[in-house]
């Protein structure tokens, strides 16, 4: 991991010194050792503040459609998929973006880690030690197998063909494990209705999920907040929250890479990934399309194909 970090810093320094980009977006230390925080490096001498570890959760692709400068972005293989999807949608100018991809060991799911070791708020250190995540709280080192606390998507992540202008491969082994789903095998629409009613009941409509999502770049035109047509009501209730989330899920259908950024952003822990996986499954089934794979194919719901009409879709 140290070697990887060193290479990363070197590359960032080089890009800034040669003035190929004006900023390198990566991760730096957060206020809490179990939370890395996005870092915009604008001076080569600050490149040494870049870090990489299993706590680098943020999908940094989210910043790209917002910038109008030449930027390099550091991506995990899953985040690189978001960059590909944004290029496919024409939302970022390929010329202005340099992608530094890292073959990564996997990322910690903070909710799983908290369930295993308790609140991370008072952690004084957190790191990967071999195949174990160590969290130090109050002088005590709590250890838990990484395989038990990684993001579900990490278990399925395939890092063979990683997109990037530069790919940093330090030979780290990726975490393996089994996703444990809260969804019963025989979940029917009634189960899902009750499940989402319970979950969205606590949504505070802060829109952190939307802002953390690389596919949600509508800004002022977002259907739920635009000053013109309003598609959700003023009242704060489960029905309105459901309306917002159903709408968002449909708007990102075929563009969502299931990166989990929305779920990690939610201050009240709503398992949004389950919603986006459901929609993703439908897209894969209906259109035989994998988001984030090809930069030159427009997302399926953005194009009209006569065959789709004929095949009854």
């Amino acid at each position: 991991m140290e070697k990887l970090e060193a290479e990363l810093r070197e590359k960032a320094k080089e890009l800034l010194e040669k003035e190929e980009v004006t900023t390198v977006i990566g991760w730096g230390a957060g206020w809490n050792p179990a939370k890395a925080s996005p870092l915009f490096v604008r001076d080569a001498q600050d490149a040494d503040k870049l870090v990489f570890n299993p706590f680098c959760q943020n999908n940094l692709a989210v910043y790209l459609p917002r910038l109008n400068e030449k930027a390099a972005v550091i991506t995990k293989p899953c985040d690189a998929g978001s960059v590909v999807a944004l290029i496919a949608e024409g939302k970022i100018d390929r010329e202005n973006v340099k992608v530094i991809s890292i073959k990564c060991p996997g990322t910690v799911n903070p909710a799983k880690l908290e369930a295993a070791v308790g609140s991370l708020d008072d952690a004084t250190a957190a790191y990967l030690d071999g195949d174990t995540i160590v969290v130090e709280v109050g002088g005590e080192a709590k250890r838990v197998p990484f395989a038990q606390v990684a993001l579900d998507s990490c278990y399925l992540c395939n890092q063979d063909n990683v997109f990037g202008d530069v790919v940093i491969d330090d030979g780290v082994t990726k975490v393996t494990g089994e996703a444990v789903s809260v969804v019963p095998e025989d979940a029917d629409s009634a189960w899902w209705r009750d499940f989402w009613a319970k979950e969205f009941d606590r949504c505070i409509r802060c829109y952190a999920c939307r802002e953390a999502c690389p596919a949600c770049y509508c800004r002022d035109n977002c259907a739920v907040q635009a000053l013109r047509e309003r598609w959700t009501g003023a009242k704060l209730d489960t029905k309105e929250a459901l309306m917002f989330h159903a709408q968002r899920a449909m708007h990102v259908a075929g563009r969502c890479t299931e990166c989990g950024s929305c779920e990690r952003a939610c201050p009240v822990g709503i398992p949004l990934s389950l919603l986006h996986k459901q929609v993703g499954d439908a897209v894969r089934k209906l259109f035989d399309f994998n988001v984030g794979e090809k930069a030159d194919v427009r997302p399926p719901l953005e194009v009209f194909r006569k065959e789709e009409l004929e095949s009854g879709h």
């Binding site: 925080s37 996005p38 870092l39 915009f40 604008r42 989210v62 910043y63 505070i204 409509r205 802060c206 829109y207 952190a208 939307r210 802002e211 953390a212 952003a265 201050p267």
Partner: peptide, 16 residues
Amino acid sequence: QKLTDKCLSCGACTFV
């Protein structure tokens, strides 16, 4: 600008 670079401009901080 430097302070805000990474901010996503959501409402989480103000709503909590």
